[in-house]
Design a binder for these strands. Structure first.
Length: 951
RNA sequence: GGGCGGUUAGCUCAGUUGGUUAGAGUACUUGCUCGACACGCAAGGGGUCACAGGUUCGAAUCCUGUACCGCCCACCA
């Protein structure tokens, strides 16, 4: 045999990757069999695959391969996601290093760069998925921004717009000053940080001796204050309600109002109200019809708007001039100094406050009022909740249902517009004629409209389009007049018939297209045959971090557009963490690169390690130890199959049994000369089939992996293979042939069971064994057969194994050389046991290095021997000249000690009246029997020890 | 502030409806190159199952509380 002693994965993986692809074994077409469909959570084209992706895709591949082998028309649709802000940031950063700024090259040029990037990284990611062994149908590869998917997006947007579900609103949004865009609540991260609470004195108008003190964590926002609020029941401040305060440094006159929202116990019980920069304050302002003043702009700098009073008129005694144009934090410092100078700062305290940061660039966000497009969520959320409650969608593990429902219940309208360039540009058009009067935004600090640009600036419609597109003109601020959604570039304005349009420059939230993904990959909204056949899909496999961002929205869109959920099962797995429990991230520098692992340990080892750690409902920590264990396991499998192949007579034995086994049915069980070890291992295999199948169906890859590891290593390799050697190396051709057949059956079924988890090594061994071109990938998964379970064999083999282990133990304890054979005498009180031991003598001889076994009926104890007791079997290992009697005595006494401890526990139970009365009878019987056994064993051991003393 | 999860051998983790002596890998000790495998074989040592109560004949497992760790959600300035 020229097969290497260790498994060398690299070449083998390459070979089968090509083979599978050449034969299009991944490909699926609608046909008459039952489909099983998974749509990939498309990885962002931000970079290369990380361990989280590896896990996510591995789990999908396990299911897909498993189902394929179980006769389903398995289809796994791959693809990538454009990734919105995340991807744009990456490219911006790279361009910046080359000295290129997005603003300078303009939208079109920048997008060209983006597409170049996406081509490269998209290809890399797909290549990496292939390397991982993912059996996706690559012919169906999609991208969220390709033509087909863009059509779906435009269609969906237009339909939702026409239904009146999309509206433009003015809301406080978290604005990232670095990325220059609004962020969704799910795109920000909150963290508690050490800060300060400043107590600032606001003088009361016309009562210069009186003050109202407010506490704030963000003093710079006071520049935009338009009120001070107190609780209506707060006795301290009742006298001030209705009066005015003078905003320090700005000298704006602002009203003192009362509102239930104010907590009298916090701070001073008086709150400054900054409606343009705080969610709460915006609400309060709405209730009290307060004016809002922008104090901070989109770059987080202090604006000039603060010079206006509540009526929009310039303030006369304005003292804060130098703050205008300063960064928010710098302004804060100056402000505090100035307040100190004027003795308007009462005090400052240390305080821990929540800071909201952009999840991509980590910049502290600025709450800003801005115009955004929103999708109404109320109705859609209700339907999604219904579908979850009626189990149209089931969550695995179930614990995710509750948070999911809770999230839907509190769902606010979805802000779907983003002020970036990379994404689906919103398919809304503004007629330059009809919408001409409306304010488009600001240009050089002036409010501008289309009409103004046409007439005053004398710009051409084309120039205006460019200015809007590149965001030279700020937020579009048009109301419904002259606005319409259209899937394609409109030809004529339905209102005036003219054909000069500006397209809304915003793009859609990246999750908008993701939400349509399970439908769009099959060509929706067209009723394609794929859509009819594969949709709804079967299961969505994803990490819990995007349960809300993505899963919930897909379900809502599915219900909205097709009246059904896009999948019936949602399988939520854990997040991969490093060995310290931290989430892997590039910035922390704790990422383990799956490609590196694949090279070092092999792809199958990576897969097995991840599957092994993939415990439902838990995040997982992963380290080199896991990969090492998996690599060793792969090697074990490799070698045991080498062993089997080395022991086959190539032409005589291998082909006939394999031909019959190929159908998937068992033939070994029908052989007429099966003996105990065969029956036992076949029964164990059968049980493993049952449990592994159940584990995979229950989305428990960890359980499946553990079961296979245990069976293959601890049962098959450690015991059956060793048992079988005496027969394979013997001269009896019949028994030899039987053993070979059993081995072939076991190994073939092991390979199939393991294939979904370890596709490469199993294919390699399978093909070596079979020498046929048919792939294991499309072979039949082993089926559990109840008739093959053999409990008797299991009990009987245990006796043999225990005897062997006991003798080995004695040999080891007594330092008997490996090469020395020993004689043993066995005393058995039961004929049945004697028969079993007698029939399996050869195994005891070979595995425990025994020269001769004698059976004895006398009560006499052989001198100079070490002993062990297994149930009703007494074993005496004859060790003349090798035994240390003192040591033997100690060994036996420590055994007696252990038995005593255990017996005490049992005896206590038996003497407990309550136990006898209340425990179930089977348990009582078990304990009684157990106690009897312990006493018997103890008695025998004590006798032996006594004999030792006599010597 | 609310919700969820975790705490089991030195380390990383399993442990199904409460019921054998709480398991595995790794690390450790000892002995093995004997015809699959030293990425191996054999034998061993190692745990008050975070803590405190409770339910029960019986608790790692169920309940309550506490501590620490982690995650998610929330408008307390």
């Amino acid at each position: 045999m020229e097969i290497s002693k260790t498994y060398e994965p690299i070449e083998i993986e390459k070979k089968w990757l090509n083979f599978w692809e050449e034969h299009k074994l991944y490909h699926s077409e609608p046909n008459n069999s039952k489909p099983f469909t998974i749509v990939i959570p498309p990885p962002n084209v931000t970079g290369s695959l990380h361990m989280g992706h590896a896990l996510n895709n591995l789990l999908q591949d396990i299911i897909i391969r498993f189902k394929r082998m179980n006769g389903f028309n398995s289809c796994w649709v791959p693809g990538t996601d454009h990734g919105g802000i995340a991807t744009q940031n990456v490219v911006e950063r790279i361009l910046k290093k080359a000295g290129i700024l997005r603003e300078n090259i303009g939208r079109d040029k920048f997008l060209e760069e983006m597409w170049k990037w996406r081509k490269e990284t998209g290809d890399t990611i797909l290549y990496q998925l292939k390397k991982l062994g993912c059996s996706c149908d690559w012919d169906k590869t999609s991208f969220t921004m390709d033509d087909r998917r863009s059509k779906s997006v435009n269609y969906a947007f237009t339909k939702l717009y026409e239904k009146g579900l999309i509206y433009r609103g003015e809301r406080i949004v978290d604005w990232c000053p670095r990325c220059g865009t609004a962020l969704n609540e799910s795109e920000v991260e909150q963290e508690d940080e050490k800060g300060k609470l400043w107590y600032i004195k606001y003088p009361i108008q016309n009562e210069s001796d009186k003050l109202i003190i407010v506490a704030t964590t963000r003093p710079e926002t006071m520049l935009g204050d338009t009120a001070v609020a107190v609780n209506p029941n707060d006795e301290r401040y009742k006298k001030f309600i209705g009066k005015n305060a003078v905003l320090p440094l700005v000298n704006r006159i602002i009203p003192i109002i009362s509102d239930e929202m104010v907590d009298p116990k916090f701070g001073t019980g008086a709150v400054k109200i900054t409606p343009a920069h705080d969610r709460n304050d915006a609400e309060t302002a709405r209730r009290h019809n307060l004016v809002l003043i922008h104090a901070i702009d989109k770059e987080a700098k202090i604006t000039s708007f603060i010079i206006n009073d509540l009526n929009g008129q310039p303030i006369k005694n304005f003292e804060a001039n130098e703050l205008i144009g300063k960064d928010r934090y710098e302004a804060r410092k100056i402000l505090i100094e100035k307040l100190k100078e004027k003795e308007l700062l009462e005090k400052e305290e240390n305080y821990v406050l929540p800071i909201t940061r952009c999840y991509r660039c980590d910049t502290a966000t600025e709450p800003l009022i801005s115009k955004q497009w929103f999708l109404k969520m109320n109705g859609m959320a209700k339907r999604a909740m219904e579908s979850a409650k009626t189990e149209e969608t089931k969550f695995f593990p179930e614990k995710w249902l509750k948070p999911y429902l809770l999230w839907l219940e509190n769902l606010k309208d979805w802000c779907i517009s983003r002020q970036i360039w990379w994404g689906h540009q919103i398919p809304l058009w503004y007629c330059m004629n009809c919408a001409g009067e409306h304010i488009l935004g600001t240009l050089d600090d002036k409010a501008v409209s289309i009409k103004w640009m046409l007439e005053t600036l004398k710009l051409t419609p084309q120039q205006i389009k460019e200015k809007v597109k590149d965001y030279e003109v700020g937020n579009i601020n048009i109301d419904s007049k002259g606005v319409f959604a259209s899937e394609k570039q409109p030809e004529k304005c339905p209102q005036c018939g003219k054909s000069d349009f500006i397209r809304d420059p915003d793009v859609l939230d990246t999750w908008f297209s993701s939400a349509l993904w399970p439908m769009s990959v099959f060509g929706w909204p067209e009723e394609t045959k794929e859509l009819k056949y594969y949709y709804p899909t079967d299961v969505l496999v994803t990490g819990h971090e995007i349960l809300y961002l993505w899963v919930a929205r897909m379900i809502m869109m599915g219900l909205e557009f097709r009246n059904n959920v896009p999948y019936h099962d949602v399988y939520i797995h854990g997040i991969v963490r490093d060995s310290k429990g931290k989430k892997m991230s590039k910035s922390l520098g704790n990422v383990i690169d799956p490609l590196g692992i694949m090279e070092k340990f092999g792809t199958d080892a990576l897969r097995f390690a991840l599957a092994y750690q993939g415990i439902p409902g838990r995040d997982m920590q992963i380290s080199d130890e896991n990969f090492l264990m998996a690599r060793n396991f792969a090697n074990k499998l490799w070698n045991v199959s080498r062993f089997v192949m080395m022991n086959l007579d190539q032409n005589a034995v291998i082909l006939p049994p394999l031909a019959s086994l190929a159908s998937g049915g068992s033939s070994a069980k029908n052989l007429d000369d099966l003996e105990l070890t065969d029956k036992w291992i076949l029964s164990e295999l059968n049980l493993t089939i049952k449990n592994v199948t159940k584990a995979i169906e229950d989305y428990n890859p960890s359980e499946a992996s553990r079961l296979l590891y245990e069976f293959i290593w601890s049962k098959y390799c450690d015991w059956y293979v060793e048992f079988s050697k005496t027969r394979l190396y013997g001269n009896d051709e019949k028994t030899k042939s039987t053993t070979q057949k059993v081995h072939i059956e076991i190994i073939e079924k092991i390979l199939k069971l393991l294939h979904p988890i370890m596709p490469f090594i199993t294919e390699e061994i399978f093909q070596n064994l079979k020498k046929q071109s048919k792939s294991i990938m499309i072979s039949d998964y082993p089926k559990y057969d109840e008739s093959e379970t053999d409990k008797t064999a299991d009990e009987e083999i245990r006796e043999v194994i225990e005897v062997i282990t006991a003798i080995r133990n004695i040999r080891s304890e007594m330092n008997v050389k490996q090469s020395d054979l020993v004689d043993i005498i066995i005393k058995i009180s039961s004929d049945e046991s004697e028969k079993i031991i007698n029939e399996n003598k050869q195994y005891i001889n070979s595995l425990a290095k025994v020269k001769e076994i004698k059976f004895s009926k006398t009560s006499e104890k052989p001198k100079l021997s070490a002993s062990a007791i297994i149930g009703n079997i007494e074993i005496f290992v004859l060790l003349e000249g090798k035994i240390d009697l003192e040591k033997e005595k100690k060994r036996l006494e420590s055994q007696i000690h252990k038995i005593n401890q255990e017996a005490n526990v049992c005896a206590a139970k038996i003497s407990n009246k309550n136990f006898l009365e209340k425990a179930n009878p089977e348990e009582v019987e078990r304990v009684k029997q157990k106690l009897q056994e312990l006493y018997d064993k103890k008695k025998k051991l004590e006798e032996i020890v006594k004999n030792l003393d006599i010597k």
